[in-house]
Amino acid sequence: MKILQSKISESGLVETMSARSRRNFLLRTGAVTLSAAGVAMLSGCVNAGKYGTADGAVSQDVKILNTAIGAEHEAVAAYQVGAESGLLSNDVLKVAVQFQGHHKEHIEALAKAVMSMGGTPAEAKSDYGFPVHQLKNQTHVLEFAAGLERGAVSAYAGAIPVFDNRDLSLAAASILADEAMHWAVLRHALGLDPVPGAFFS
């Protein structure tokens, strides 16, 4: 491992690891993907009739899934903004595109679940009004993405207990784990402690 160095980054953050080691870390961890089992849970196992779920409960589960789809669409769009910003190094760009791909997979799986429950999946917005003017360098882009990923972890953590269909809770937990890995990798790339605590809320 490279010798730790301490220098003030462009944004004022204290960098505790060399840029090379962070790049290497990004390349290694970027290979993690959402498990096939998580996708199967969503796309193949959701059957309201099978579980005898009440219409109201199904409707509520669909609403929660569609809220998640909406947030996933926003994440895809945010990574697109980052990818097209010209501010990311090639190594970081590869990881950003890979993370974006994960979010696309989440959407695909969540949408299948919604349709299997008789619902209509939420669609992407034409404009998210991202604060693009505030993104001046790679650190800003990474901080922006990390904030979204951290919020997504909270959103899934909050949704898991309220799904009527427990298969959906299981699948949401699988996605949560993926988003948490994204968050940790982005924090590491920012020179922050990737896992800042034993618990998360």
Binding site: T67, G70, A71, G147, L148, R150, G151, A152, V153, S154, A155, G158, S201
Partner: peptide, 9 residues
């Protein structure tokens, strides 16, 4: 700090 929980949405 707690608001970080909200910024997913």
């Amino acid at each position: 700090q707690l608001y970080a929980q909200c910024v997913g949405c």
